[in-house]
Amino acid sequence: MRRPADLVAFSKVKPGDVVMDVWPGGGYWTRLFSPIVGPKGKVYAYVPAEIAGFKTDPVGIAKALAAEPGRGNVEAISDPIAQQPKPSAFNTFDVIWTFENYHDLHNSFMNGASVDGFNQAVFKLVKPGGYFVVVDHAAAPGAGLKNTEDLHRIDPATVKAEVEKAGFVLDAEATLLANPADDHTLKIFDPAIKGKTDRFMLRFKKPAQ
């Protein structure tokens, strides 16, 4: 269950916005954002370079998405997660969004890429007053990064601390995807919980300058 209308409202994406969909996968959210931002807006389907070699060919999928009819405002891009943007790209994005993948930035297949560096890069890219939205699978309170690899979960308190360290301020959190029946002990792909995990929604804001 994704509750797309509610999540789009939470994201604050609006017509004319420049948006980045981090780790777009099959392109579900990119496809939703594209008509919302419209012809005056832009959606970047961003594939971390660290996963570009996956057998699923995430870069190829993103490029195919951008080539779909009516997706003239979509562009596929791929760079290392901690690559610092050029000054010309500073303050470019209204919203940077990542859905159920932030925890993976900490995992071994990222080859030690800096998550702090990623958050710092995101902070530079977002416009003053713009947003960074993280939706992910919740780990047990206090678990920190313990279960990012085995269960594919992360403690929301850890995400808050990491993103705020980069300079963002927590603007809102929501329980639309919460599931109190999830005891946080199962891997998110387990049939008993798949699609029904306890998920948190955090919207961070870059302070106006």
Rank of each mutant, 00 (worst) to 15 (best):
P39E: 15
F123N: 02
S88Y: 06
A67H: 01
K196G: 07
A172V: 02
D79V: 12
G38L: 03
S88V: 15
P141F: 07
A192K: 14
A5F: 06
E100M: 11
D104G: 07
F200Y: 13
D116N: 11
P207E: 13
G53S: 11
T158C: 07
V43L: 13
D116P: 02
V126Y: 07
K42G: 10
P180V: 12
H103V: 05
P15N: 11
Q209C: 00
E162Y: 01
V115W: 09
F123I: 03
F118I: 00
Y46W: 14
A178S: 15
H137N: 15
G38C: 09
V126F: 03
P180F: 13
A138Y: 10
T148G: 03
G26I: 07
V163E: 05
L32I: 14
V159N: 10
N179P: 04
F33W: 15
D136T: 05
I81R: 13
A45D: 08
V19H: 13
N119M: 04
I81A: 10
F132N: 09
G72S: 05
E68D: 04
R31K: 15
I188N: 02
P15D: 08
I154L: 08
K205E: 09
M1L: 08
D21M: 03
F123W: 15
D6Q: 11
G25K: 11
N107R: 14
G16K: 06
K187H: 14
W29F: 13
N101P: 02
L32A: 13
A67C: 01
V37K: 13
